[in-house]
Every structure is written in C-alpha cells, then in structure tokens.
C-alpha cells in the first residue's frame, strides 16, 4: 500500500478522525476569526464605496462567498459520495450528511442576501434571473438530499442512497456555472473569475477573498463538529468511545 492510500485509510478511521479533528479545531477557529475580522473590517470600513452602487454593494462580502460555498460544499459532498460508494469509507458518509444542512444554509443565505441586494439595485426582491433560479434549485437539491436521508430508516442504506442522489445532482452544478452564459438576463456577468484578471478593484477584492476563506473555514469547523457528534453517536458501542467517555 503506498503512502497516499495509507493516509487515505487513516482519515477513514473514526477514532483517528475524532482525535485529529479535535486537535485541528482550535487552530481552524483562530484562523477563521482572523480572516473574518479582517474581511469584515476591510470590506465594510476600508474598501471605498462603489461609484454606482454606493455602500449597498458591501453586501457582496456576504452574498458572493455564501453563493460560492453553496457550490463548493456540493462538490465536497460529491467527492465524499464517490469515496463512500467506491471504498465504503464510513467517514465519507458522515462528512456527506454533516455537510448537507450547512450547504443548504449557505444557499439560503445567498438567496436572501441576493434578494436584499436586488431590492435597491434592480428595484425588485426577486427576479427570475438564471443564477438566482439555479441557486434556488441547488437549495431544493440540498433539501431533497436531507429529506431522503431522514426518510430511509436504515442508517447504512440511507448513507448510500444519499450518496447516489448527490452524484445524480452533480448534473445541476455545471448548469449553475454556465447559466450565466446560457441565459442573458438582469444579473451582471462574472467579475472575479475572468481570464483577463479580476474586474474589481484590489481594495475591494482582498476583503472578498478573505471572507471567502473565512466562510470555508467556518464550513470545515461546523462540519467537523457535526461529524464528531455523528461519529460518537454511531460508535457508541465501540471500545474507543467508551474509553474516551469513561476516561474523561
């Protein structure tokens, strides 16, 4: 077995995951606080007001990272689904189902902030714009995944069924990404991910990236906390959990 597979299987073991995630959590939390405070301060105070949108553009620092997270978490879940279905690694299942509510929450935040932003900018709370619509569909897919997982009683088949559904839903991700190209509507075009460099001022970009990192760290922290709880619940009968609980 090469070193990569060794590493892979180490992470797949619940006690190892529990121990290492416990050690990582304080560091991650520290980094999260730093990036969040910098991102918020630089975004809300230091960055200049937009010449067209004034101060209301500042909602970008929540809206855009949340929308990114909505897709990012789905990709993590899809990867976990593959790992779970192919190698039957228990942790992947735990990661998948712990991520789903967080992803749904981020998709919801993106929708709400987008709607709040739309009111002053477009003069309406909701437009049937391609990206808003596909974000809404992403939220529905998340909710479907959560619903399926809670409907299947047997834990093991619930995990595998959810993994299959997640992979089927991956079809939706490219549609979200290319919807900007497909349907040309009110929503402005992409400004950050462009080949000829970002079309956004650096003073505005850095806080945005910092917020994006903060959101990712937040996701990892919350996912780990939730996964740790799930692992303890699943492995209640195993020796390491009893030692852990009895020892402390």
């Amino acid at each position: 077995m090469n070193s990569f597979m060794k590493w892979f299987h180490k992470w797949g073991s619940p006690p190892w995951f529990y121990r290492v995630s416990g050690k990582m959590l304080p560091w991650l939390t520290g980094l999260f606080v730093i990036t969040l405070v910098y991102g918020l301060y630089a975004g809300l105070v230091l960055a200049p007001a937009d010449y067209q949108q004034g101060d209301s553009f500042r909602i970008i620092y929540v809206h855009v990272p949340a929308a990114w997270m909505g897709m990012f978490i789905y990709m993590v879940m899809a990867a976990a689904a593959v790992v779970h279905l192919v190698w039957r690694i228990k942790i992947a299942d735990v990661v998948l189902i712990s991520s789903a509510p967080i992803g749904a929450a981020f998709a919801f935040i993106a929708l709400v902030t987008g709607s709040l932003w739309g009111k002053p900018m477009w003069g309406t709370w909701w437009t049937w714009d391609a990206r808003l619509t596909s974000e809404l569909l992403l939220l529905f897919i998340y909710l479907g995944i959560i619903a399926l997982h809670s409907a299947v009683e047997d834990r093991q088949s619930a995990g595998r069924a959810t993994a299959v559904l997640t992979l089927v839903g991956v079809v939706n991700i490219p549609i979200i990404h290319y919807s900007v190209v497909w349907w040309d509507t009110l929503h402005q075009g992409t400004t950050v991910m462009r080949l000829d460099g970002p079309a956004i001022a650096p003073q505005m970009l850095w806080p945005l990236l910092s917020m994006a990192i903060a959101f990712k760290l937040y996701y990892v922290i919350v996912m780990m906390l939730s996964a740790r709880g799930e692992i303890l619940a699943r492995e209640t009968k195993s020796r390491w959990v009893r030692e852990l609980v009895g020892g402390e």
Binding site: I141, A147, L148, A151, V152, A161, V164, L165, G169, N172
Partner: peptide, 26 residues
C-alpha cells in the same frame, strides 16, 4: 432513479417529487 431510491419507503410520493422535480428543470 428517484423511484429506485424511494421504492422501499412507506410514504415515497412527496419525497420522490422533492428529489426529482429540481432535476426536471433543464
């Protein structure tokens, strides 16, 4: 696919539509 996932469930109808409708959109 949706039916195959929910065929063993007792109240499959609503969950089936939740799973399948978003995929029908394109």
């Amino acid at each position: 696919i949706g039916v195959a996932l929910t065929v063993g469930l007792r109240r499959a109808g609503v969950i089936l539509s939740l799973l399948v409708l978003p995929l029908y959109v394109p």
